[in-house]
Amino acid sequence: MIYRYQTKLLVSIFLASIYFFSVNVDPIVAETPEKKITNGFITNIVTNEENTTIISVTESDGKTSNLKINPETNIGIESVAGERWVSIFSEKPQESITRLKDQQSRLIVLTVVHDGESILSISNADKRDLELNLQYLFIVFMIAWIVFFAYIFYLSRRQNAINRDIKLLKSQPSYEKETK
């Protein structure tokens, strides 16, 4: 019967999803040599002659690092009104700098992902509770798959029970006559 394979096939999806989930390394969370995370506020923004913008980020322990903004740096920051503005630096360089200066003047803590020299992304830090967010992601995928499996399991049990019934009935001589 095909339905015997059904459950097995779908269990394999389930296992695969758990496997992928455990293998998955979130690029923002993971700190690798190429990707470092600095949390701090901007103390200085300068644009030099070669038209590259350099930002000084000061961490809570007083350590300051000077980092370069690339054209492909992702920027996601909030205005005073709580409105979120997302862009890539090369798209709106002037507005990006204005908004970063606004962040500087308000001493907002930003999360800067960089490779030691140039910035990959810069965004507001306070709400980026990644640990918590991963929990949400995990819960959603777990519960969704458990529900789908419970349903499939329930249906295949019902199908098996009814198949047994049909087999029993077919062995009775009256079956052919009655269902016509």
Binding site: A16, F20, G76, N133
Partner: peptide
């Protein structure tokens, strides 16, 4: 099954994390 496994692979491994919202 095949498309679901492929989709899960894409969701967890292939697609980059969105900068705005993160993992969620």
């Amino acid at each position: 099954t095949i498309s679901m496994v492929f989709a899960i692979w894409m969701v967890f491994l292939w697609v980059p994390t969105e900068t705005n919202q993160g993992a969620v």
